[in-house]
């Protein structure tokens, strides 16, 4: 991988971040007086004056923008009016809880999605294939909050096996993670299957067969690594879906993570926290996309050639 490739991806990621910060700034400014919005309605005139001073609200938009940008770069996202603490602190203490949920869901996605996709591809057209594909369509169509509610109805209300909400044990984690992981697992299974099918029909697979390489070895050494390339990209794309899904799922299961914090903060218009969550998620997404791009370049050496702009003929 040449440094130009990594550099251009880094530049792209930074640009996305800058766009997000600018977007938040524009929304913040366009929605009214930030002093009124960011502070509570009962804020004292003195507090409002301090706030105006600090964010330079009496200066030009450009200066305001630069002030905002500097503050964000220093990790200063304002103060949550609910408990008066810095918004970043409020957000950061929710991160581990969400990460626990997110990684468990990701694990479920991989464990469910990839093997079922591979098996479906290897036994194409069989009942296994059809069953897997039916499940992927179902998993893709069912809204995750509805799935969560069904699970609660069945396993908490009716069977009384699992707790319906809260955190604290593995059993609390099970249903939210399953709910969150299913939709992504469906997508991954579908992509793994089609990617495997593509690879299995490539000439090099026939060559491997002609060379007398054993079936299992062909699949493991030749097919899987090549099939992994598109799957990695899709996985990266699904992480955005996981984060979006976490917002509803955490609300359904009262899982005290970032998503629930975001929904509660939106409801109570605790906007310092809202913007902190949005910027943190944007940052995460940029990092994830960067990692996916790098993994992609590492898995597929041809990608650099693809990335170059081809001159017109």
């Amino acid at each position: 991988m040449n440094p130009g490739f990594i550099l251009s991806k880094l530049a792209r990621g930074s640009l996305t971040l800058l766009l997000t910060v600018s977007f938040v700034f524009i929304v913040l400014r366009a929605s009214g007086d930030p002093a009124q919005i960011m502070l509570s309605d009962e804020a004292s005139p003195a507090a409002i004056a301090t706030f105006r001073e600090r964010w330079g609200l009496d200066r030009s938009y450009l200066e305001q923008y630069l002030t905002y940008l500097t503050a964000v770069l220093q990790g200063d996202f304002g103060t949550s009016f609910r408990d008066g603490r810095p918004a970043l602190d409020v957000v950061m203490e929710r991160v581990p809880v969400t990460l626990l949920l997110g990684f468990t869901a990701l694990l479920i996605t991989l464990v469910l999605g990839i093997p079922s996709g591979i098996i479906a591809a290897l036994f194409r057209g069989s009942w296994v294939d059809r069953l897997t594909m039916s499940f992927t369509i179902l998993g893709h169509s069912i809204p995750n909050f509805f799935l969560g509610i069904i699970l609660i109805l069945v396993f908490s209300m009716t069977l009384r096996w699992l707790p319906s909400s809260g955190t604290g044990s593995f059993w609390h984690l099970l249903m939210p993670a399953l709910t969150l992981g299913t939709a992504a697992a469906a997508t991954i299974a579908r992509f793994t299957r089609s990617s495997m099918l593509d690879v299995l029909h490539q000439p090099f697979m026939r060559t491997a067969k002609a060379k007398g390489i054993a079936h299992d070895k062909r699949i493991l050494r030749h097919a899987l690594p090549n099939a992994a390339i598109p799957v990695v990209t899709v996985l990266g794309m699904r992480i955005g879906g996981l984060i979006g899904g976490a917002v509803t799922i955490e609300t359904v299961f009262a899982w005290p993570g970032l998503g629930m914090l975001l929904v509660n903060s939106v409801n109570q218009r605790d906007l310092a926290v809202v913007q902190a969550v949005v910027l943190l998620i944007a940052f995460t997404m940029v990092v994830v996309n960067l990692m996916v791009d790098l993994a992609y370049g590492w898995l597929d050496p041809r990608i650099e050639v693809h990335n170059r702009r081809v001159a017109k003929a």
Binding site: G4, L7, R308, R309, A311, K312
Partner: peptide, 15 residues
């Protein structure tokens, strides 16, 4: 002449 590639530094390659 056509540009055949953009380099990060230096002049663009032309054809």
């Amino acid at each position: 002449t056509y540009a055949t590639g953009r380099r990060l530094f230096g002049p663009a390659e032309t054809f």
